[in-house]
């Protein structure tokens, strides 16, 4: 109990650092670009234009309101892939700092996840704004968008801690992960409707947390439905499971980071 209070106090002490890191990353991302933060809004829209043209004209995918279908799925998937691939590098990048001064190490992957959260919220604004133009008026349930985003955030922090710790010891992960997320994207119904997935690959959906997160997000933002308890439980279990496993792996290995980075 006492230890928990100390942990919370330490976290509070370093919360300003966390804020500063996010601010710095944000500044660096848009430095010297004319449109600046507008890119967070424009990028998903331009991507949607390209992808929906390609997929509806070339691959002839017939889904109602395909651009919105794609945008909502991509938003959640990119949140995950962006946050985790940034987290992956975070400990190695922090090597200069952690060798010189004591900072709680979880700050680094956590910061990358929060940074990606900020960009995701900007992109969400873009999606909500163009949805009526694409023929889908967002209903009131869209206000619940923070719920699935929160599930994904917790999931990201867990997976991010695992990846950042493992990457300290095996840098191979760095090269492998880009390929893995690409495969993961193709196995998740982001670009195509669920029934387009061949029967033989369906089993993967059952164990694919991204499928449930995206499903949840689309239901509240696009279809105006309230997700049932079952979906909430599944999403919650995935998030907490990854978070706890990530925390354990990170805690067990963090004292050795400094010898390997």
């Amino acid at each position: 109990m006492n230890l928990l209070i100390i942990r919370i106090k330490t976290f509070k002490k370093y919360s300003y650092l966390l804020f500063n890191f996010v601010k710095k990353d944000f500044f660096k991302k848009y430095r010297r670009s004319v449109l600046g933060v507008l890119w967070s809004v424009l990028n998903p829209l331009l991507m949607a234009a390209v992808v929906s043209t390609a997929f509806s004209r070339i691959f002839r995918i017939q889904t109602e309101h395909y651009p919105v279908y794609y945008l909502t799925g991509a938003l959640i998937f990119n949140f995950m892939s962006g946050a985790t691939s940034r987290s992956l590098l975070s400990m190695v990048e922090a090597s200069g700092l952690i060798k010189k001064v004591y900072v709680p190490k979880y700050i680094f992957p956590l910061e990358k996840c929060l940074f990606e959260l900020v960009t995701t919220v900007f992109s969400f604004l873009a999606v909500i704004l163009v949805m009526p133009l694409l023929g889908v008026a967002p209903s009131l349930s869209a206000l619940l968008f923070l719920v699935p985003i929160f599930y994904v955030l917790v999931f990201n922090i867990g997976l991010g801690m695992i990846l950042s710790a493992v990457n300290v010891f095996f840098r191979d992960i760095e090269h492998l992960y880009a390929v893995l997320t690409q495969a993961w994207l193709f196995l998740t119904p982001v670009l195509y409707p669920v029934d387009a997935l061949p029967e033989s690959a369906r089993w993967f959906l059952k164990i694919n947390p991204m499928y449930y997160f995206i499903d949840y997000f689309r239901r509240v933002v696009m279809y105006g439905q309230l997700p049932d308890l079952r979906l909430n439980v599944i999403c919650g279990v995935f998030s907490i499971l990854f978070f706890v496993v990530g925390l354990i792996i990170f805690k067990k290995t963090q004292d050795k980071f400094i010898l390997y980075v």
């Binding site: 710095k24 500044f27 200069g96 010189k100 001064v101």
Partner: peptide, 15 residues
């Protein structure tokens, strides 16, 4: 503890 082990740890040159 204030460690003056390496001054300006975490300085970012762009800022």
């Amino acid at each position: 503890i204030a460690p003056l082990i390496e001054l300006g740890a975490g300085f970012d040159n762009e800022l």
